[in-house]
Design a protein around this nucleic acid. Structure first.
Lengths: 198, 198
DNA sequence: CTAATTATATACCGATCGGTATTATTCTCT
DNA sequence: AGAGAATAATACCGATCGGTATATAATTAG
């Protein structure tokens, strides 16, 4: 056991509560009072354990991506480009259609528009969205090399299209879309997927 | 001329400046100090002219929808369902690809996630998004009656799909997507549009 | 035991939030 | 000119923001 007085709360459980809070209300919309009240700890305890609000948000973001965003990395490992697209869109439908999760996507509405003070977070989320799109693009380029996509298909355009639908589904879920409705959106979005001639 | 001391600023110009401010930074992200500084008026003048921050935002929202959202109502008047879809998506590409406009969409990121105080605005924007989707759905139902869509096509699913792509394009534009990139997204999204056998 | 170390709770910091009371100024109407 | 009405400028309100100084309690090391 480490030296000094032992911590009286579970940091992992606290991160989980903070995640759902930031997920629902975004970065700026979540106040320190929200956090301390929900986590059941005092302000100095929060700062001693996590640094400050911004550092806590970054920890939450890591946690969110490794859990809620797990379907993304898994989808990119699917054998064909068509299956990658399918798993991405259906995974988003499952995630956002799950009534147990807060609506929307932490990465999308966490800080789309915000005051000057949260500008760092806005940029961070934006670059993460871009990185996600890049990952899809690289996977589709590989697919093209493997003859898995028609020669005239553009991996970057298709990756952008997939990202757009993913973002849109997150926004749509804020309006209360059900899992079935999101699934049908995914199905329609996949209809146009470029068919290989072979 | 009305009785009393005349107003020394142009309310229409002030609304325009407020629109671009709310458009960029969202409802909560825009402070009264931002507003008074940008509009070049004092706080009491703003309150006398527009009521309060929330009332000003609603005025801005009306203005935004009648200007930036004009392409939507126009698109719904297109002769065929396919052209409605095309004009909706291409209109969004033009709007969000215009470097003269702030990125994103006021209705989408104006208050997706926010603190408790802005909850009214969040609900307002959400219900407007739903109303927009409903308008598309009704147009597509009319198209189906007119034999303009295949019998097995679902107007509500297609309307939801179109809305998702519109939302997603708004988010994508925050990441700096160009007009051409958004146009290609629109083009891909339209490939799957149900073809009529006729 | 004492000393060192770490977490806790209370109470507070300056800055900013949205909003307003007060007073002075500029106009129309009689 | 003077009364009434509306806007303008200054200065301020309580509440909340993110963050912290201070002191106390709980633990390990010696």
């Amino acid at each position: 056991m480490p030296i000094g007085r032992p911590r009286e709360f579970d940091t992992e459980k606290a991160l989980e509560l903070a995640t759902s809070l930031f997920w629902r209300k975004g970065y700026e919309g979540t106040s320190l009072s929200d956090l301390t009240e929900t986590l059941g700890i005092t302000r100095p305890s929060l700062y001693a354990a996590f640094g400050n609000k911004e550092a806590l948000f970054r920890l939450v973001l890591e946690r969110y991506e490794s859990i809620a965003g797990a379907y993304r990395t898994k989808a990119l490992e699917a054998p064909t480009a068509a299956k990658v697209a399918q798993q991405l869109l259906e995974g988003a439908a499952e995630l956002h259609g799950d009534k147990g999760n807060p609506v929307g996507c932490l990465g999308v509405h966490g800080a789309l528009a915000c005051g000057d003070e949260a500008d760092m977070i806005r940029r961070e989320l934006s670059s993460r969205r871009i990185a996600g799109e890049e990952a899809i693009r690289r996977r589709l380029e590989r697919a093209k090399v493997q003859g898995d996509l028609p020669p005239d298909a553009s991996p970057s355009d298709l990756a952008r299209y997939l990202s757009v639908v993913l973002y849109g589904m997150a926004v749509q879920s804020v309006g209360g879309a059900s899992r079935g409705e999101l699934r049908r959106v995914a199905e329609i979005a996949l209809r146009q997927w470029p068919k290989n001639a072979h």
